[in-house]
Simulated scan of single mutants.
Amino acid sequence: MGARAQQDYGFFGPDSVTWKVWGYPTSIVLGFLRAVVIEELDPHLVASVDQSGQVKQRPKLRYDRTMQYFATVKFGDAESVLRASDTLMKIHARAVGDDPVTGGRYDANDPASQLWIHLTAWHSILYTYEIFGPGRLTAAEEAQYWEECARAAEFQTIDPADVPRTREGVRAYFAAYRPRLVGSEVAQSMMNFLLDASTVVVPDDVPRPARFVFNAVVRRGVIATMPRWMRKLGDTRQSRTTDRVATAIIRPVVRTISAFPRLELALLRRASPRTAPILEPVLRGVPPVHPVVREPVEARAQYGVTDPREQYAAIQAERARQAGPVPYPKHHHEELLPFPA
């Protein structure tokens, strides 16, 4: 059965660096796991994840749903992206509560929290692409990548003006955010759980020896990409020798997969069945019905979808009147809520 053509190229398209980097095999497991593991050091985010309880209860479903959302934003057509963004916005509107570590209040739609998740994901996907894949982008490609990162921010509550446009800017952002990070018991427990790729990613019918080997290598590969101070904070230390060995094992495997799109698609179908149909037209080179890249403002007007920042402002106004969406109870059951919620 052939891949279903999208209606358009969405907001990036085949000439984008986003397609080049996010479509590379490193994004599926290594980049994704690095992002969600590091994100847990934000006490507001980990409080939300812990109080939801769904990551540990249904890790594979949550991985599949989150990958589906990420893939939709990068590779889906314009209407699919806007509908997914609008749905996630509404789901996150109820993900508010108290953070027991800082004593503050978390809000999954808060722009600062969203920016942390957004930049951690885009940086992790690029960094694992560089370490295990083809290497550094050209200066022009990297500049384009961060511009596209800012465009993707438009589908969240983030002000695109707050998104750094250079690697130096991204490093400065992380340095400024570092004092907010906390290696609490909850954060370390969640990081250790998410580093178990066999629990989060590998299908249950894979033989146990294969699951053990896969997890042993991937876990060490992800940790190898984390700075020393972050490993100490998350209690995920390992030696430089282990870093080098894990990298040496993973790099040729990833590059082999990248040379065979059908193999990449087959593996993706196993790891994330909801994501495969979104990436299949891209990997198979199936053009959309209308081969054009869309603009967010024009697409929102066509499909009648409100800008997330406008939606958030309206929600905040409702909360000020003691109204608005009712917060989720602890350990709620919400299948559409992805990892970074």
Score class of each variant (00 low, 15 high):
Ser16Pro: 03
Glu79Met: 09
Pro100Met: 00
Pro100Ala: 01
Trp122Ser: 14
Glu318Tyr: 15
Trp229Asn: 11
His332Leu: 07
Arg171Leu: 11
Met1Ala: 14
Ile91Cys: 05
Gln302His: 08
Asp162Pro: 04
Val21Trp: 04
Val213Ser: 03
Asp204Gln: 15
Asp99Ser: 07
Ser189Gly: 12
Pro273Gln: 05
Thr236Tyr: 10
Phe70Glu: 04
Asp50Arg: 13
Leu233Thr: 13
Ala313Phe: 03
Leu30Trp: 09
Met191Trp: 04
Trp116Asp: 13
Gly31Asp: 02
Glu39Thr: 09
Arg34Gln: 07
Gln68Met: 06
Ala139Phe: 09
Gly304Asn: 03
Ser258Asn: 15
Gln51Ile: 00
Gly103Met: 01
Pro325Lys: 03
Arg83Ser: 09
Asp159Tyr: 00
Gly53Lys: 11
Val202Cys: 05
Pro227Leu: 00
Leu263Tyr: 02
Leu33Thr: 10
Gly304Arg: 05
Glu334Trp: 00
Asp86Met: 06
Asn192Asp: 12
Thr138Pro: 01
Val170Ala: 02
Asp307Ser: 07
Gly53Gln: 08
Thr87Ala: 09
Ala224Asp: 07
Arg65Val: 03
Lys60Thr: 06
Arg171Phe: 13
Ser16Arg: 05
Thr18His: 03
Thr72Ala: 12
Asp50Gln: 14
Thr166Met: 03
Ser27Thr: 13
Gln54Met: 06
Tyr127Cys: 04
Val101Phe: 00
Thr166Gly: 04
Gln6Met: 15
Cys149Thr: 14
Val213Gln: 02
Val293Trp: 08
Tyr303Gly: 03
Arg294Val: 01
Arg284Lys: 14
Pro164Lys: 04
Arg178His: 05
Gln57Cys: 13
Ala140Glu: 15
Pro207His: 03
Trp229Arg: 14
Glu335Phe: 15
Gly97Trp: 08
Ala93Asn: 09
Leu268Tyr: 10
Gly324His: 02
